[in-house]
Write a protein that binds this DNA or RNA. Structure first.
Lengths: 147, 147
DNA sequence: ATAAGTTGATACTTATAATATATCATATTA
DNA sequence: TAATATGATATATTATAAGTATCAACTTAT
């Protein structure tokens, strides 16, 4: 199992918007080119980022822009926005434990809070990572290329 | 996306083995009944737990037993044993970023170490949770039922 | 006003992975 | 040696993610 690529796609999208905002008109097709991902998927992710207040996209009007400073967007914000982990949680609990068995009917309750702790540890770390961290690094790598 | 149910199945299996070791002969079919999971899957997980040195299983010989004290088995040990997250990592990076694009060819390197940090945070928390924690709670819940 | 370009929406297809199922070989033990 | 258990394998089913095709709706520039 893996966390959906929509997450890294979203990071890529935001990086693109910021890096190319002065040079190019950033469209969903432009981003599709840079990411190597289908434009329909890009539009889907853009729509989720828009709903979360991170980007400005308007039907018909080209030119996608950021709606928030990069240091106010965390990995967690994006993770939530693109629905990386549905409300069912990070762990898939086997679905039919036997309620006639003492272990089967109690294992879920005895495990859930601990699985939630693990998920929370992951999410808390994501809250500490800002998009500006990534974009700054990408920009400095690009600068290094041009020497 | 979710972490494979093999993880919670494994927790259930170990709990079963310990809880019923005195009352029943614990077989893969017995466990299949308690978990509501197909016996072939159970045998597969058992084989992984065996490889990791957590259980004793022998072809032909019935009676599965624990090979390690419960307080020496962590969630992380199980997570590793059942291969919850393959070596590709927790995050699925979109696979074809455009190498002709400055962002496309640098985004991966700029993101990877941070994704690894997130995964490590999750795994470190798993190392703190012992199977004895879960089994103790299940046992006390069962005890409470019988009052 | 209209044409060109862009996003929004939807339906369908494809690819992949997890789990279930069926079946039989092999080992143990009474 | 019969009964029972695990090991192994091949196939089917299911769920989900991503790709693709297509067209409607909107914006903007001419």
């Amino acid at each position: 199992m893996q966390i959906t690529s929509r997450f890294t796609i979203a990071v890529h999208i935001i990086t693109c918007i910021d890096c190319f905002k002065d040079e190019y008109k950033v469209t969903s097709n432009f981003i599709a080119q840079s990411t190597g991902v289908n434009p329909v998927i890009i539009r889907g992710v853009l729509s989720q980022l828009k709903e979360a207040g991170m980007v400005n996209v308007r039907q018909g009007a080209s030119g996608i822009t950021l709606a928030k400073p990069l240091d106010e967007i965390t990995f967690y914000d994006i993770y939530e926005a693109v629905d990386s982990v549905k409300d069912v949680g990070l762990f898939h609990f086997h679905e039919n434990p036997n309620m006639d068995c003492p272990v089967g009917r109690n294992i879920h309750a005895a495990t859930d809070s601990r699985l939630a702790q693990v998920q929370a540890a992951m999410e808390n770390k994501m809250k500490q990572i800002k998009l500006s961290d990534v974009v700054d690094e990408v920009k400095s790598k690009i600068k290094a290329e041009n020497k």
